[in-house]
Design a protein around this nucleic acid. Structure first.
Lengths: 169, 169, 169, 169
DNA sequence: CATGAATGAGGTTTCATTCAT
DNA sequence: TATGAATGAAACCTCATTCAT
């Protein structure tokens, strides 16, 4: 059965996201993606001008969503509410798009330059939030804890979130 | 002009760690490392059998230290003490070896299989810790917060910890 | 200018066989083969996964044929007939495929381990043949003679069989 | 216990001969030879200007001896005696110096150009011998037989002459 | 539009040889 | 003299990209 042409671009992005998050960006070849989609190398270039375009399109897609969700937290009034909302949005994104979350992490490790823009707002805003929201986050110890436990999440993420999902955290 | 030094192996590891943590493992070539050390590509191979050996040696070096520090926390008696100690060790490692910390993160993103063994103990032990130490960490909300803020740290880390260092968090 | 041909794999094998038999296996580079075929080095790797795969494919191709021909001699009834038939098959192969014959020789000098299996049957069978066929081959002196003259053929072979061919031995 | 300096050159040649005949010339590195002798790479260059010098010195040493022995056969009077003597000398050389015999074979496969001079005389002389000595060798069939059985010897040779030695052919 | 062979730049690795110690 | 780290040329191989079909 023939697959609709329009889907091809979407399917390329889906395969690329999965492979990139599983194996890494450099470790995934155009051939890998093509095979996963069920087309050939050349066909990819009907839909994207280069591998980098795929990489960047995936980044825009998900970083934008991620960014918008985080920023939406600032609609709330109090620091406490902003904070909780942001956490909620963050977690929602992570659990809804584990592959995308892992991909964003890989991406920002490897492409620090290109990622700065994206990080700019959340970083500044969040630092301010942290400072002003001392009552909420009980600075120093809590931050320390948070940083530490944040590593857990990275671990879970790399184990494909299986444990966390099962445990319904 | 030819220079002979005894510490070449050490210098290769230092350069590799820095370059890997800056640019990524695949993105760093043997030539990059050689140039950074001030030798030629071939010379690397007197000290390491392959690029992968460098990658793995760096991983063992630092993962072992990291692991041992985390595990040392279990010497403490109460959950509270264990927790604080672990956090302390974790942060100490991060701030003393920011490049190594970033490298370990990159490594475990890309080499998930090889890294599982290393993660085994901390993961299980820490999950138990989290469960049994509910009084300390106020589960769910705190964990959520932690996961979120942990992402900050990753951001800071990828920006070379500059902000964090200056801010003396 | 880019040309597309369907028989590239075959042409690679032909060039490789000739170059290997002329210069040796290690002495022939992928670049040599590519240039001889009229393609680039990279193109070779669409058809073979490695240089060693070329080496081994050539070996299977011709060793199988050679082997089957020799073994076919055992269809004959008497020792005398078996012997003559085997000689006939042997010579036929040598004169029809001088490059392959030289290649098999080079190969078994350099890859003694891998070649043992192939040599097993002919060796055992032939030793038996020699023993039981004393009447035909007048053992000791004849064998000695044979070994000696066999060296001649190696010489001729390495000189590309030119002399032998012209002389219609 | 210190090994005498004078021996070193000889020991290099011995190790080289063995390794070359076992693994091939290109397949044997200067480091392999050095390790086998029990010295370091640099030390080899006290005794030989290059790897090729070792290769060529081994060839001269043994090809000269081989050549002289074969040529000595022409001291005999009759064709029959010449023939038998040549065979005898040939076999003596092979069994006394199996590694050298294998080395000469490898060498002349790979260095056809350089070896021609050496082969010139025996080849011509022997062809004449074969022609004139028809009574002895019963041309055509016997030559064919010989060529065939000569392959056996190549097989035995590559199996390190073990079988032949044990069987006292 | 799709295919997949071919390109070509660039990566990893090998190793004969040199040379500071 | 001996050592073995370093050089540098050249080998093998990879892969994003192009293009004839």
């Amino acid at each position: 059965m023939r697959v609709k042409r329009k889907d091809t671009k979407k399917r390329i992005l889906e395969s690329a996201l999965r492979l990139f998050s599983e194996k890494g960006i450099r470790e995934t070849t155009i051939k890998d993606i093509a095979k996963d989609v069920g087309i050939t190398e050349g066909a990819i270039y009907r839909h994207f001008m280069s591998k980098d375009e795929i990489v960047k399109e995936l980044f825009s897609m998900y970083s934008e969503e991620f960014y918008n969700r985080l920023v939406s937290a600032f609609e709330e009034k109090t620091y406490k509410e902003k904070f909780y909302r942001m956490v909620k949005e963050f977690l929602k994104f992570c659990f809804e798009n584990p592959e995308a979350f892992k991909y964003l992490n890989i991406f920002h490790y490897l492409k620090a330059e290109e990622v700065k823009e994206f990080l700019k707002l959340p970083k500044d805003a969040i630092i301010k939030l942290l400072e002003e929201g001392k009552g909420v986050i009980k600075v120093r110890l809590e931050l320390a804890l948070a940083m530490f436990v944040g590593t857990l999440e990275r671990v879970f993420c790399s184990l494909r979130l299986v444990s966390l999902k099962e445990r319904k955290v």
